[in-house]
Each structure stands twice: as C-alpha cells, then as structure tokens.
Design a protein around this nucleic acid. Structure first.
Lengths: 203, 203
DNA sequence: CGCTAATCTAGAACAAGTTTCAGACCGGAT
DNA sequence: ATCCGGTCTGAAACTTGTTCTAGATTAGCG
C-alpha cells in the first residue's frame, strides 16, 4: 500500500485515467507560469485535449482541480522527501528540516505553489473531502519525519498547529508580506512545540 | 492616538466619508447573510446607494472591500475586547482567553467571518498593504492581552505563529473540517509557545 | 454484430467581477 | 457668479468560471 487510496468511486477506464492525468498535467503546467489566475478552465481543457464539459465532469470546479493538483504534487514530494531521511538530532529539528526542504521545493515553483495554496485556503465546504486528503498527506509527511508510529494526542495537536503555521506562513510569503527568512523563523518557532509536547526520555 | 491611522492619502470630504461608510456597512450586511459569495459588487453598490464605478473607485476589488471590512470589524472588536481585561494567570492563558473570546464573536456571525477570512487569505500582492494593516491590528490585540510593552524578538515570533494558527484554524472551522473544540485545542496548544519564549521571572 | 446507457465534444448561454465611457454634478480658484 | 478639474452616475461591454444542450463516440453486453 503506497499511500494512494482513491475514494474508489467508479473505477476509471484506461482512457479516462489518461484524460485525468492530462488534465492534472495541464493544470500544473499553467499554474507553473502565472499562478492561480493563469489556470483558466478553457485553457486547461484545450491543453489537455478535452472538452470544457468533460473537464467539469472530472473536476467540478477550478478549486477542485487545483486541490487535486496539490494532492498530486504532494504525493510526489512525499516520495522525494522519503528518500533522504531528515537531518537533526531531535524530532523538532527533523520536522523543521523536512518543512524547509519542502519550502525550498516551493521556491523553485512559486507560481505553482501560489495556485495550489491559494486554492487550498479558499476552498469552501464543497471541497472539504479533497482538502482533508491533502491535510492527511501533510500530516503523514510530518509524522514520518518525526519517526513516530503512535503519536500521543498532545503530539497530534502540535502537528495540527504546525500545519496551520505552515499553510499560513506560505500564504504570507507568496503574497510578499514575509521574507524567506521570516518563514524559516516561523517554522523553527512552531517546531519547538514538539519538544514541549514530547516530555521525558528520548535519546 | 486611538489605533486609527489611515495612509492619509487624499483627505476625504464629509460626503465621501459617508459614502465609504455606507459601502462598508452594506458589505458587512450582505456578508452577514450568505458569506463571501453573497457579497456581490452590484448589490453592495445598490445597497450603499452608489454607482458601481464609484464602488470600484473606493475599493479596487471585492477582496479589497472585504479586507477593509475586516479592518473595520477588527477595530470594533479591539475596542470591545479592551473593555474587559483577559482572564488568566500567565500570558499564555490570557492570550488564549482573548482569542477564544474573539472566536465566540465569530461564531455569532459565521457568514461574516467566512467572507472576511476567506478574502484575507485569498488576497494577492495587490492587497498586501491592507492585509498588513489587519495583521498589525491583530498583533496589537494579542500583545495587548499579554500586557507587553517591549516584547522580545522571540516573543514576537511566537505571536506571529499564533496569528498563523489563528487564521488557519478559523479557515478549517469555517469550511467545516474542524469542530469548535478542535479550534479551542489548537489555540491552547499554540499559546504554550508563549511560555517557551518567556523564560524565567514574571509573576 | 447490434443495442443501449454512459461519456465526450462543440458551442452557446449565463453569472458575477471588472473595465470603460459619456454626461451630470460638486467643490474650490478666479 | 463663473469656470475647471476631479468625482459620481448609469449603462454597456468584457472576462472568466460555470451550466446547459444536441449530437457524436465509446464501453459493455446479449
């Protein structure tokens, strides 16, 4: 089980799977230049070689599309990050390391990051399931880097707060209201919560 | 100096000030039912008794309008909160108390909160100055509740992270992905950072 | 193969944010 | 009081997300 898991609605045919993939590719491509506003549904449809109506059948809104794009990219990143274990003595340092690595990946594609993160935080209730999936993947990445199999409720709270900070810090960076250094500080600051919530022992 | 301070662009005439106020009132009114999508520029203009073009002269986009609405509401809230001092022994408890009080205010007007917070996190670079103003007011509220006149850089970092958590937790609540209890936990968790960054002394 | 339901395409149509424009109006300088 | 530049109005136009429709294609099945 390689961390996939679709809601297993109707199983897609090969051609459909290919269409879906073309759409996601076009979405990421367009987002890569131009960011959120450059992802125009008509253009996505054309670039994916698909009719507008079909695009909407696969992704019921632009937000759905971009959140799905984020799922896709996150999955990639999870794989990439997993290859090299995070550096750092304690859990806090390792989480900070992973998040900074992820942040550097975002810096390489700021427009893409913009489109995905803006969509994520703008999503309303109709996109909750998909956003939740993104959240689960993010949680998995963080817990992974902590090397925890059975986190305590307290630690899970800390992880939730770390995710909040991560998203919000990204937003402030993307909108030019915080520097890269600022984001780094914020991440390191919030990671201290892990120490607070991870009491004694631990070599 | 009661925490006002406009960028002092051209000073507005009385009638203009009145228009601006009517617009903000209409915006809050419409947001109060229906949330973000219920704030339609044509309707705001009509409700404010102003031409569409004029609305756009005062607020260059729907996002600008809603962020300005948030500034307005926050200012109110700052005043209200200031009246009764926050309860709690240490700074962390007081901050958590203030934020929970603010959160309860949001619960009374969830649609309005939705419109304002969604606009805030969706805002792009063109709205940075206005969003920054909101951020400054929020910071002021938090520092106020801590009773700090000269916060250390470390404490400021903690406050930044608290603001990140505050916004992001609100978002997850508004989009139905987190319960009220969850938000409470998140706030209390992040407020622990204040203890961590406020070393010895302090009765 | 031939049928049927589901899916896909092309394109029009609609909704709401934003822009534009001609003319009416307002406030300050002469 | 008159004139001028900036402001406001009303209305149309434009853009992009979303919906709808009629007809072509496809997938699965007897």
């Amino acid at each position: 089980m390689t961390a996939e898991a679709k809601p297993a609605s109707p199983p897609l045919t090969e051609r459909q799977e290919a269409r879906r993939r073309r759409i996601l590719h076009a979405s990421a491509q367009l987002a890569g230049r131009g960011g959120f506003e450059a992802v125009q549904m008509r253009e996505v449809a054309e670039a994916a070689g698909v009719a507008l109506g079909t695009l909407y059948r696969y992704f019921p809104s632009k937000i759905h599309l971009l959140v799905a794009t984020m799922q896709d990219q996150l999955q990639h990143m999870h794989g990439t990050l997993r290859k090299r274990p995070p550096a750092g003595d304690d859990a806090a340092a390792r989480v900070a390391d992973i998040l900074m690595r992820a942040f550097r990946a975002m810096q390489r594609e700021p427009h893409l990051a913009d489109a995905m993160v803006r969509a994520l935080t703008f999503a309303d209730r109709s996109v909750s399931p998909e956003v939740d999936t993104v959240s689960r993947i993010t949680t998995a990445i963080i817990l992974d880097s902590m090397g925890l199999r059975h986190p305590t409720p307290e630690q899970l709270s800390a992880v939730r707060v770390i995710e909040h900070t991560w998203h919000s810090a990204l937003i402030t960076w993307l909108s030019g209201r915080a520097s890269i250094a600022q984001v780094k500080t914020d991440i390191e600051t919030v990671c201290r919560l892990i120490d607070v919530t991870t009491p004694p022992d631990a070599p």
